[in-house]
Computed example of a mutant assay.
Amino acid sequence: MTEQKRRPLPHEFHPAVPSFTVVSDDIEPGGTLKDDQVHAKGNVSPHLRWEGFPEATRSFAVTCYDPDAPTGSGFWHWVLFDIPASVTELPAGAGGDGFKGLPEGAVHVRNDYGTRDFGGAAPPPGDGSHRYVFTVYAVDQEKLGPDADVSPAVVGFNLRFHALARAHVIGEYENPGA
């Protein structure tokens, strides 16, 4: 994918907020996603850990978004919110396969695959490298408001008004094609 085709990150349209630190045992910033995070090769949500968020944080939300998907609106791979403020780490796999390690009360909405879980990278063959933006939001209330039946856009709307801070880690993946 050429540089001029790269689209803005979703939070570039939101008001500026402070940042904090998010790291992953599975994603090297700017590096290639592991096969586990690829839809056809493992489909496992990555490990994420965060720190340095505002003291007023009451919950967290986690999203994964591909701004480079050839849809005109990007592609939501994971939308999770109402993670208790006491939780500062999600193990690999928390976004699916029994949701092991997912905290009680956390809410998944449908991703663009139509499922309520993590859906791994799956760029079209030959479309170039896509960015997968894993964002953790520090939220100013325990419950963001929507339920599991809303779209990722509704969650994003609520996060625009309730994010105290956010941080992200970006991995890339390319499907070279036939």
Rank of each mutant, 00 (worst) to 15 (best):
Glu12Thr: 09
Arg6Pro: 01
Gly31Asn: 08
Asp25Gln: 01
Gln37Arg: 08
Pro124Ser: 15
Pro70Cys: 00
Arg110Ala: 15
Ala153Tyr: 07
Ser86Gly: 02
Pro176His: 15
Glu28Met: 11
Ile170Arg: 01
Ser45Thr: 06
Gly30Arg: 00
Val22Pro: 12
Ala153Pro: 02
Pro176Cys: 15
Pro91Lys: 00
Gly114Ser: 05
His168Ser: 14
Phe99Pro: 01
Tyr65Leu: 02
Pro15Gln: 14
Val169Gln: 04
Val38Thr: 13
Glu104Ala: 13
Tyr173Val: 09
Ala69Glu: 01
Glu28Leu: 13
His130Phe: 08
Asp97Arg: 12
Pro29Phe: 04
Ser59Ala: 09
His108Ser: 09
Gly42Phe: 04
Phe75Tyr: 14
His47Ile: 02
Asp149Thr: 15
Leu102Tyr: 08
Cys64Thr: 15
Gly72Val: 06
His39Asn: 04
Pro46Arg: 10
Phe161Tyr: 15
Pro10Ile: 10
Thr21Ser: 14
Tyr137Gln: 11
Thr71Asp: 14
Phe99Val: 03
Asp127Glu: 15
Gln37Gly: 01
Leu48Asn: 09
Phe118Gln: 07
Gly52Glu: 07
Ser59Lys: 03
Asp112Ile: 05
Ala106Val: 05
Gly119Asn: 09
Ala167Lys: 06
Gly114Ile: 07
Tyr132Pro: 04
Gly119Arg: 03
Ser151Arg: 00
Trp78Ala: 06
Val109Gly: 08
Glu28Trp: 02
Ala40Leu: 09
Asp149Gln: 09
Ser24Cys: 07
Ala92Gly: 04
Ala40Asp: 11
Leu159Thr: 00
Ser86Tyr: 03
Thr115Cys: 05
Gly31His: 05
Arg49Lys: 06
Gly177Met: 03
Asp112Met: 06
Phe13Arg: 13
Phe53His: 15
Gln4His: 11
Ala92His: 04
Phe134Pro: 02
His47Ser: 04
Pro103Cys: 06
Ile83His: 12
Asp36Arg: 10
Asp68Met: 10
Tyr132Ala: 12
Glu174Cys: 08
Ile27Lys: 00
Ser73Cys: 12
Ala167Asp: 07
Ser45Tyr: 04
Glu172Ala: 10
Thr71Ala: 13
Leu80Lys: 06
Gly177Val: 08
Ala94Ser: 07
Gly31Tyr: 00
His168Glu: 13
Leu48Met: 11
Glu142Phe: 04
Pro91Asn: 00
Ser86Trp: 02
Val38Leu: 04
Pro46Ile: 14
Cys64Val: 15
Ala85Cys: 05
Ser151Lys: 02
Pro176Ala: 15
Pro152Tyr: 13
Trp78Met: 14
Ala69Asn: 02
Val44Asp: 03
Asp149Pro: 03
Phe81Asn: 07
Cys64Lys: 03
Ala92Thr: 08
Cys64Leu: 02
Ala85Trp: 05
Pro84Val: 01
Ser86Val: 00
His130Ser: 11
Leu33His: 11
Ala167Gly: 13
His11Asn: 10
Thr115Leu: 07
Leu164Gly: 10
